[in-house]
Structures are given as C-alpha cells and as structure tokens.
Nucleic acid binder design. Structure first.
Length: 636
DNA sequence: GAGGTCTGTCATCGG
DNA sequence: CACCGATGACAGACC
C-alpha cells in the first residue's frame, strides 16, 4: 500500500509538471485550503489575476465576496479594482486639462516590439536585468499609450495627477500587480486601435514595393519615383538627424525624471480653512517628486507653515542634486514651453484673489469666529490669559495706541446724550455695512438697548461657536467707559457720515474723539489685516494648484515626447527598410544591383529622390546624407 | 527657554 | 485733505 502511494505521488508530480508545461498552474495550497480548484490557467506566465492579486483575502471583503474564482466577470472585477486604484493614485483632479492632438496618438506604435524589443527575443540570460528594466520602462510607456488612446477618444482629457517621477514604491507595486492586465488590455486595444504609423508605413512599403517592382522606370539621371513615394520620403527627410538626438535626450532624461520637492501645500498654515485642504498624506505623493538617483532624502511631511527653501527655486536646487538643472533644461526645452503656452497657462499670473476669497469665505467661517472678543472675537483660551483682559486699566498695555487716557472713565455718564444724538442712524445701514464684509465678527451686545438684530447676530455666532462667553476687547471696554449706546463694532461699521455726526454732536473732548477714531481705525485695520492674510493664504493655495497643474502637464509632455521619439525611431527604421527595398530594385550603369549598404536615398527639396553613396557615418545612422556628394546612377 | 504660529496694531502707500 | 483698504513690519500671547 505504501508502495502504491509512492507511485501515485510520483505520478501526481509528473502530471503536475506536464500540466505546468501546457500552461496550467496547479495550486496545491489553494486546493488544500479548500477555496477553489487548484487548476488555474496561467496562460503564458503570471498573467492571471489570481497570481497577481491576493484573491483569497479580497474575496472575503465586501467588494469581493460575490466574486467566484471561475466567475467570467472576474477580469472585469479586477480591472475595475485596478482602475479604482489608479484613480485613487491620481490624487486631486487636474486643474489643467491637456489637449492632445490625435495624430500624435496615432503616430505612436502600439507594440514597438519590432523596434525596441529585440532583446526580449534573444533570451540571453545576461540581459535579464536589462530586460527587466526595459520591460518596466516599456510598461510605463504603454501606460502612457493607453492614456493616449483615451485622449484620442475625446481629445480633451483631465490629466491624471500622477506627477512625473513619482513612480513611488506604491505605484511600482501597483504597476507590477496590474502589469499583466495592462498588457492584456493593450493587446485588446491594439486590435481596435487606429492605424498606427507602423502599419501605415508597412502598408506604404508594400504598396511602394509593388509599385517599384512593377513600374519602376530606370533611374538614369536621378531616380524618379512616384509622387506618393516622394511625399513619403520627404516626410522623413530629416529623421536621420532627429532620431539619434531625440533618443539620446530621451535616454538621458527619462531615467532621472524629476528631482524637485514641491510641497506648497505644506507651506499652508493649518487653521480653520484646513478643511479645504487635502490631508498631507493624500497630497504628499503629488508633490513628492523624488528622483531615483537623488541622495537627498526629504522627510515625508514637513512641518506646517514651513515653506521649503527649494520651493520656488527650480533652478536653485543644484546643491542638492547636481543633475537637476540640466535635466530641467533638457525637459523644459523650447518645444515644451511652446506646448505649455498652448495649454492655456497664460492666466497663471491672473489669479483673482477676490474670486478665491469669495469662494473660500463660504467654507471657512470658523477662522473668522475665533478672533478677539467684541471686535475681534478673541479666543477664550487666549483671552483668559491675556493681560489686557486681566486688568481693569485702560492705559495698560497700550502698545502704541494714541490719544487715550484713563480720564475717559469719567465720561461714561455721557452715554445717554450719545444715544439720543444717534437715533436717526438707521440700523439698516449698519446692517448693510456689516454683511457686506463677511470677514468681520459679530459684536458683543453691550447694551440692553441694542437693536434686536445685533443680539441675533451675536446669538448666531455664539451658537455656531458654542464658545464660552467672550472677553471684551480693550477698545470695547473703552467705548463702554464712554457710555455710548453703540458698541465698538457698531462704531467701526457705521458709515463715516454717521460716525462724524456722532463725533460732532457729542460734547466729547479731544481725547475722547481720538479714542473713538482710534477704535474705528483699529477695528477696520483689524478686518483689513484678516482679509489680507486670508488673501495670502488663497494666493498660496492658488500657486499650489498651479504648481500641481504644471507638474501634471510636465508629466504629460514627457510622455508625449517619449512617444514621439519612439515614433520617430520606428519611422526611421521603416525608412531604412524602404530605402533598402528601393535600392535593391535599382541597377547601376553596368546592370549590377546596388548594394544597399553603400547607397542611400535622399529626398531633395524639389521632390526628387536621389540615390547617394553612403559614407562611413551614414552607413549606420544615415546622418549627414545631405552633405554627401550626389552621384547620379544610371539604370541599365 | 527657544522657536513657530496667530493675531492685533501701527505705519505707510495708493486709490 | 480726509477716508479707506491693502500690506509690511512688529510685538505680544500662545503652544
């Protein structure tokens, strides 16, 4: 029996090996765990979602409990999850939708395997690391191509907020997790993608080859080709000089994409309007543009309020990363700037603080409510310890306040006259003056004779704040000492005509008049200071958004540049192939076929196609073909 | 106690 | 010229 068991086990092992050879994966652990069948289709490697995703864990979640391992919607399920993760990784929505031309998308070869993946077919184990690197890089390109295709569908796309160079570990893991699914999607989309340049050139090559093979006239003095062929060649006349440069730039720039730590959000002062700001944890990836070769390690979160010194110094980062300036110069070349100019960035400097102020004021009223009491609604914790509130003297701690002395205390009996003098002042006007400025706090209703609307305002503020009874500010105390009916808030917000009338009709001394003027001036200036600081914050937020948008656009431009370089490279190779095909049909004056290694085609400005001998340099890169001395070849 | 932050206040400028 | 808003600078309170 034991012998039979041994044979049975060995047979199972062999059977398992056979199954693995034909592409069926045997998951024994899963079988023992009893979740589902151990046989899983691998379909050419670890492309299955079962392998790449912790399905056992995910199945127990609320989102995955309905998914059966053999459910046909499983791919859709994991695709949805992948898309959800990508959307989450994007961060905040892009502020600047990038408009990309569809022709560029069509120009991008989808597979590019015939151009840049010869090493994949070599199977050289020494190149395994290189292949892995290239595979990841191409994976990124493909991701960008997928994005490009989505662009081609609607021409206007909100760029994802995955900033360039933020290929963080999370994103890398996510990409590795979904790499196979992306490739699967790529294959599916390639079938339905529009004709790429690759296909276009191939079809053109076949067409031209047939054309040349059948009706090519003898090139006696200058090769005469069909207009189509000449047009095609004229398109790639300068590719030979462009492609190596582009590719060299690409190779030099892409591995070190971004090295600038932009953390404007961290510069924001965390206060009442912090609700509008995203958490630092969520926004960190957007601005943590780390270079892969950067030795400068930045703490994950800088302290709030501390603007990094490198914030606006894009070119001043050389002390931290010496390669950065050149990289920036390489990235933001003229073409990039031209593209940026086309992307509606002209209004960067036209941020409307009033607009931001208006939008912001609807959401962040708390920061207005925690100001001083009376005029300023000062916070209770602060006011409790404030010396100004702990002292009864008006002269203490004046801090430069002018025109006030303690003698105003003796004038409190004049309040009745003041109130009588200002019965003609309509509270409606005061109400208008109050609510036109939403940044000012409600008054402290000092007098029992205050209008009911003032009490209502105070009660609203108190109910919203649920704060302790507010301390009276110094100016409020001074106004109370004068015995005026109106509070400091009213004095500050009343029209200037009424205020002047108040000063005139009262028998106030010079010091009292000065006091009231100072109270009014300080109150207004306090509001102005609050507005000013709020505008500063809004401006910083606006700049942060601009930086975010620029980072996103920069990422898009880099991707487009990479795609364009690949297209150029592919076109150059196709041009080379076509040239060889054409040259193979041409005979020299002795009737011998031309050696494609020694000759090349050159498209002149007048549309004529010339056969020129290659030089040593042009035999490989085709550069310098314009400088080659022309040699007319006669067809036999 | 030092440093950062917040807020009020003053001085100044321009509309 | 007075008034007012904006803003830099400073100081005090608070954490």
């Amino acid at each position: 029996m034991h012998h039979m068991k041994k044979y049975f086990t060995e047979g199972l092992i062999q059977f398992t090996i056979l199954l693995s050879l034909i592409g069926v994966r045997v998951d024994v652990d899963t079988y023992f765990s009893g979740y589902f069948s151990p046989l899983i289709e691998t379909d050419g490697g670890p492309s299955s979602a079962f392998i790449q995703t912790p399905f056992h864990h995910y199945r127990d979640t609320a989102a995955g409990h309905q998914v059966h391992p053999k459910c046909p919607e499983l791919d859709y399920f994991f695709t949805s999850r992948r898309l959800l993760n990508e959307v989450r990784a994007l961060g905040s929505p892009a502020r600047f939708p990038t408009r990309v031309s569809a022709w560029l998308v069509h120009l991008v070869p989808d597979d590019g395997s015939d151009v840049s993946e010869p090493h994949d077919l070599s199977g050289d184990p020494d190149d395994e690391d290189v292949n892995t690197e290239n595979h990841r890089e191409e994976s990124d390109h493909r991701t960008g191509e997928g994005f490009g295709r989505s662009v081609s569908q609607d021409c206007t796309v909100s760029r994802p907020c995955c900033a360039a160079g933020e290929l963080s570990k999370e994103e890398t893991l996510l990409k590795q997790e979904n790499e196979e699914e992306d490739e699967k999607d790529e294959r599916g989309q390639e079938e339905t993608s529009p004709a790429s340049l690759n296909q276009l050139t191939q079809s053109s090559a076949l067409e031209q080859e047939d054309l040349l093979g059948s009706t090519l006239p003898p090139p006696l003095s200058g090769l005469e080709l069909s207009p189509q062929w000449q047009d095609f060649l004229s398109e790639f006349d300068d590719f030979d000089s462009m492609v190596p440069q582009r590719m060299s730039d690409l190779e030099a720039d892409l591995p070190n994409p971004i090295s600038y730590d932009v953390s404007l959000q961290d510069a924001m002062v965390t206060r009442g309007d912090s609700a509008n700001c995203r958490p630092a944890s969520s926004r960190a990836p957007l601005f943590r543009l780390e270079s892969t070769n950067s030795s400068h390690s930045v703490p994950p979160q800088t302290s709030a309020g501390a603007i990094p010194s490198s914030l606006f110094c894009l070119s001043g980062n050389s002390s931290r990363n010496e390669t950065s300036p050149t990289q920036m110069g390489g990235f933001l070349d003229e073409a990039v700037f031209e593209h940026i100019n086309m992307l509606d960035l002209g209004n960067l400097g036209t941020i409307d603080p009033q607009m931001l102020d208006g939008i912001q004021s609807e959401m962040d009223t708390p920061w207005l409510e925690d100001s001083d009491s009376g005029l300023s609604l000062e916070s209770s914790s602060r006011s409790a310890a404030s010396p100004s509130t702990s002292s009864d003297s008006f002269c203490e701690d004046e801090g430069g306040a002018t025109g006030y002395s303690s003698e105003v205390e003796s004038l409190s009996s004049k309040g009745g006259a003041c109130a009588a003098a200002y019965r003609d002042w309509s509270p409606v006007n005061l109400l208008d003056n109050i609510w036109h400025d939403h940044t000012y706090s409600a008054p402290q209703a000092q007098n029992s004779t205050s209008p009911s609307w003032i009490t209502t305002i105070k009660q609203e503020v108190m109910s919203e704040d649920e704060s302790e009874p507010e301390e009276i500010s110094r100016d409020e105390r001074r106004v109370q000492a004068l015995g005026l009916q109106f509070s400091a808030f009213q004095i500050v917000n009343m029209p200037v005509e009424n205020f002047l009338e108040l000063l005139d009709r009262q028998n106030l001394s010079g010091s009292e008049v000065t006091l009231l003027r100072d109270v009014r001036r300080r109150g207004k200036n306090k509001l102005a200071a609050q507005n000013c600081r709020k505008r500063k914050l809004d401006a910083i937020m606006g700049l942060q958004g601009e930086v975010e948008g620029l980072a996103v656009q920069r990422d898009a431009l880099l991707r487009q540049r990479a795609h364009t370089a690949k297209a150029l490279s592919a076109a150059a190779e196709h041009f080379e192939a076509l040239s060889r095909t054409v040259l193979s049909h041409i005979r020299d004056e002795y009737g011998h076929p031309l050696n494609p290694e020694n000759y090349t085609l050159h498209c002149s400005a007048n549309g004529r196609v010339m056969v020129q001998p290659r030089t040593n340099t042009t035999s490989r890169t085709m550069t310098g073909s314009k400088t080659v001395k022309r040699k007319k070849v006669k067809k036999p």
